[in-house]
Write a protein that binds this DNA or RNA. Structure first.
Length: 442
RNA sequence: GCGGUCGUGGCGAAGUUGGUUAACGCAUCGGAUUGUGGCUCCGACACUCGCGGGUUCGAGCCCCGUCGGUCGCCCCA
């Protein structure tokens, strides 16, 4: 039998759920605009080597990519993250010629990873991200974090923690890695299976093992900070200083290393500390990359950015009981009686819509009761009632739902009456009631 | 990729040791109220109990497989 379920780890978005997405996307566009970031859209798939560069040992690029051969025998990969494609585009389009350096970009894009789904982790997930490309400057590091925080805080999130660390430049990181491997060479034998694997793939990850963190070898392990150059330390200090001056509380965590291999210097992660968040607690995370632009054949420019998972953001919002669903309301619901009136209702709805009123009516000539229930569900502000009498007299009954006031007007006066009620409502509600009471008939 | 758990109408949710017509609540539709919602009462509303196969006289209940959700690990947004 055919499988007509959504593929694992994907979802349909509609109804009230999609409204939350629209709210978030709108906010993202507003805030990036204020911060001076331009949108960039890169393809959903790239040549595989864009993502799968040598010396990248992360799981994201090694095990989780959707890679396929197209009909022209090309190896292509659905983007697992936002950064690589943007750096490729930055170099390919010579965007570094931008006189107003740094180049500040943002994106909203789906990302694809073959993983076991969980709450807050999908095979197709969506990221809002930014990248700033140009000469390295600690103010940029601070700005990037600040922008990300402003998005999540504007949405109302409070249970947040900013973790930050520095990995130093590429050379010091490499020599640290070598030192770690040397240190763990003996003791790794009695570590957990995951650590054995990390030893080979990403030794830095051994340090935040949850099982072996009490091990003496772990405690006596060399510290990354001992391998940092003076310049790296100074750079990190100034980033911290700027953040502090902008009242952003951060927690320096020297175990924070991040998953993608291209990071150098500043790395950060903003996590939700809410208990209902589950194990996928990172809302957004990113860092600086000194060598990526050069690796793609561009000039020696540094970059920094973050990726923010929209699905995860929604989980965090739910954990803090923040509801982004706005009550939708419409202007008019036309209640009609009989087939002739229903057809007239269609024409009237059309007319009102063309005049800018959000209008609904009933296509199926259901009972009055059902139609009023619909009007209520749609949060209509005014009901227009059209029955046999109104048809005959060329009139309509308008009922203002909140005050229950009702007037009978000639067909030609409907628009005028609606404007009167609905416009005044926006200006000063309290006077509206007083005035309309006088107009109540019956 | 590893381990646990779950999958019954649009939604929530009963379903006992396998036994004829698969509770109940919400929502929806109709009526009481032949032209006015939010209360009340009456009535209506399931081709597939995720899907496929097996055991059985008989399966939502048992067995196998499969798809999906969810939780933990790994990893990460």
């Amino acid at each position: 039998m055919a499988n007509y379920q959504v593929p694992r780890g994907t979802q349909d978005l509609f109804g009230s759920e999609i409204r939350k997405w629209q709210r978030i996307e709108l906010l993202v566009r507003q805030l990036t605009d204020v911060f001076g970031y331009q949108e960039i859209r890169t393809p959903e798939f790239e040549h595989t080597e864009v993502f799968n560069r040598e010396n990248d040992s992360s799981d994201v690029v090694n095990k989780e990519m959707y890679t396929f051969i197209d009909k022209g025998e090309r190896s292509l990969t659905l983007k697992p993250e936002g950064t690589a494609g943007i750096i490729r585009a930055f170099v390919e389009n010579k965007m570094y010629a931008n006189p107003d350096s740094p180049t500040k970009l943002f994106y909203l894009s789906p990302c694809f990873r073959y993983e076991r789904p969980q709450k807050g982790r999908m095979r197709i997930h969506h990221q809002f991200g930014i990248e700033v490309l140009g000469d390295k400057n600690p103010m940029i590091d601070a700005e990037v974090i600040s922008l990300g925080l402003s998005v999540v805080q504007s949405l109302g999130l409070k249970d947040l923690k900013v973790l930050i660390n520095t990995l130093g430049d590429k050379d010091s990181r490499e020599s640290y890695k070598t030192a770690l491997k040397e240190h763990f060479k003996e003791p790794i034998g009695h570590f957990c299976a995951d650590c054995q694997r990390r030893y080979q793939q990403n030794p830095l990850r051994i340090l935040d093992c949850k099982i072996d963190h009490e091990d003496p070898a772990m405690i006596s392990a060399p510290k990354l900070r001992d391998y940092l150059t003076d310049d790296s330390k100074a750079y990190f200090e100034s980033v911290l200083k700027i953040l502090k001056a902008s009242d952003i509380d951060v927690e320096v965590n020297d175990k924070l290393v991040r998953g993608l291999d291209y990071y150098t210097h500043t790395v950060f992660e903003v996590v939700s500390v809410n208990a209902d968040m589950g194990s996928q607690s990172t809302v957004f995370g990113g860092g600086r990359y000194d060598d990526l632009v050069k690796d793609f054949g561009g000039p020696e420019l540094s970059g920094i950015g973050f990726g923010m998972g929209i699905e995860r953001l929604l989980v965090a919002l739910e954990a803090e009981k923040i509801d982004l669903t706005e009550e939708e309301s419409s202007d008019v619901y036309i209640v009609s009686m009989g087939q002739e009136a229903t057809e007239y209702a269609y024409q009237l709805a059309n007319f009102l819509r063309l005049n800018g009123f959000v209008t609904d009516f009933d296509y199926y000539a259901r009972s009055f009761k059902a139609q009023f229930k619909s009007a209520e569900r749609k949060k209509a502000k005014v009901a227009i009632i059209i029955g046999e009498d109104e048809m005959k007299n060329g009139q309509a009954v308008l009922k203002k739902i909140d005050t229950q006031t009702q007037v009978t007007v000639a067909e030609g006066e409907i628009l005028h009456q609606l404007s009167h009620w609905l416009d005044e409502e926006h200006i000063h509600d309290e006077f509206c009631d007083v005035e309309t009471q006088g107009e109540t008939h019956e």
